[in-house]
Nucleic acid binder design. Structure first.
Lengths: 292, 292
DNA sequence: TTTTTGTCTTTTATCCACAATAGACAGTTT
DNA sequence: AAACTGTCTATTGTGGATAAAAGACAAAAA
């Protein structure tokens, strides 16, 4: 097959949820805007819905006939884009499987393993190479540089440089800048999660990403913001892998965040720097600890 | 054709130069190591040389029959790898041609224009995207973000952060570290070029890259070193494009480098920082000036 | 006039095929 | 024994084909 229709399937599933809430659907362009797909895809969705007798569709009239049933949805594993699948397989191999630094990575073998063509694997590896974990030998294989202590130290060194600078710009933002409102919402979520930490500590990872990304964004520097992708992917897979003491670690990080947020609000550069450094230091220690 | 044999042609040309200097060639593995290619390619080269009656080849005996003539060489344009060709075409389009920020980039059109397949163009764009000049809309086109003033400012901001830190580490290197010897050679070249600036000012660009890369390398941080690629490519194409006052600009930069080098030698952090800042400031001004 | 729909074209994502290149291994030479 | 060559296999780089998805444009409806 030339192209997976995951965009269609995913949009179809999301459209089913919309359908559950109304008795008729809006115009094709409007649906497209809502679901973030083109009209071509919308029309394919409507056609499929008609087939399933979920609605009648005649030009503008889209009348809902019945509520969607669980079997109307496409299974979740069919809605993941190929690049997501490749990313997950690859990260599992290099993080979980005993992947030694220096190991060779073979495009063909990886592709066979995942059950996909080589082109997609190749493109993934090229994209992934900017994270500094693999390196290409032209006309030959890739080399795994490995998720080592050095990697973590180099990553955190740059992260700290960037975040200190971003935090300083954040504190200097005009009071009417929308970032302050985002910060309010994020702070409120911190309190919520801390209030029910035993049950909700797992939500930290996502909140952490949101918070730090907000800080980095205020640098208004594409290189700084883009770099945060590396942090995100490393921490994302890392949290999945290393779960020891997650509750305590997250509770502590939440407290540090609150301190950091208060410092940002004070707009006092020295205080911002101190709070930021304190949090980054403990984030680095957590990461290093989990490496060996 | 499935794959261009540019590796063969380029290695063949380089092997001709080796051949001009001796009466017989070394073993296949040794030749391979010298030219940086596999034995398969070496054997293809030897076969071709036999065909051209440049040598007789029987197992270990490779006797040179005659000196290579100019027509024995493959033309230079056939030895460039496809990705280099694509890079050049692309940079010409976006730097020289009236490429407005926000413009759409079309893989198919670009491929037709360059006379190549879409796969190669696509892979180039993915690799190139880390330079922050283009951005992908999934399932759709790329957007040119443009070589704008903001781009230059964001680039130099990060560059300055990284270089200040690298310069500080450089000054702290042990005296026996090989980087000091590299620095000596680079400094000597500075004096040579300055001594004949009217004729040799064009050599600055390459020397500049070598010097700054040496400094960045001493950070021992892959992200900092990798980032220097972006600087390199931007300045590389930029110098080709903007040549006004090149002689004066380069002379001034060479003087600043010498000052910077002396500061590194002094190992005095304050002096290093001052010299580094001074040079980076003028480098930034030069870049910004040439943008509009 | 503005938005929507029907229809059609273009482009992207992906697989596959094949030449170029790398690399493995056994036998041969020094 | 160590290095080299002959031969063979495996992998990479690249063009081409095709379904999915985007998007252009005119006709139709509000």
């Amino acid at each position: 097959m030339a192209k997976q229709n995951t965009v269609f399937k995913d949009a179809f599933n999301r459209c089913l949820k919309l359908l559950a809430e109304t008795s008729s659907l809006p115009s094709e362009p409007e649906l497209g805007a809502t679901l973030g797909v083109s009209r071509t895809t919308i029309r394919a969705i409507l056609t499929r819905m008609e087939e399933l007798q979920l609605l009648t569709w005649d030009k503008r009239a889209k009348v809902v006939l019945r509520q969607p049933k669980p079997e109307d949805y496409y299974p979740a594993e069919e809605t993941d884009s190929l690049s997501d699948i490749i990313e997950r397989s690859f990260m599992r191999r290099i993080l979980a499987g005993g992947a030694e630094p220096g190991m060779q990575i073979n495009e063909l073998e990886l592709a066979r393993d995942i059950g996909t063509g080589t082109t997609s694997v190749r493109e993934f590896l090229i994209r992934f190479s900017r994270f500094g974990l693999i390196e290409k030998r032209p006309n030959s294989h890739w080399i795994l540089k490995g998720f080592t202590r050095e990697f973590a130290l180099e990553l955190t060194e740059v992260r700290e440089m960037f975040e200190l600078r971003s935090a300083a710009s954040f504190a200097a933002l005009a009071p009417e800048h929308p970032a302050w409102a985002d910060l309010d919402r994020i702070e409120a979520l911190h309190h919520e999660i801390l209030g029910d930490i035993d049950n909700r500590y797992k939500e930290f990872s996502e909140l952490d990403e949101r918070f730090h990304l907000l800080v980095h964004t205020s640098s208004s520097n594409r290189f700084i913001v883009d770099f945060y992708d590396i942090i995100t992917i490393v921490f994302h897979y890392h949290y999945q892998w290393n779960k020891t003491n997650a509750r305590e670690r997250n509770a502590r990080a939440l407290e540090e965040h609150l301190d950091y947020i208060a410092a940002l609000r004070s707009r006092d550069p020295a205080r911002v720097e101190a709070a930021c450094r304190r949090h980054l230091k403990s984030a680095r220690e957590t990461l290093l600890q989990s490496i060996q």
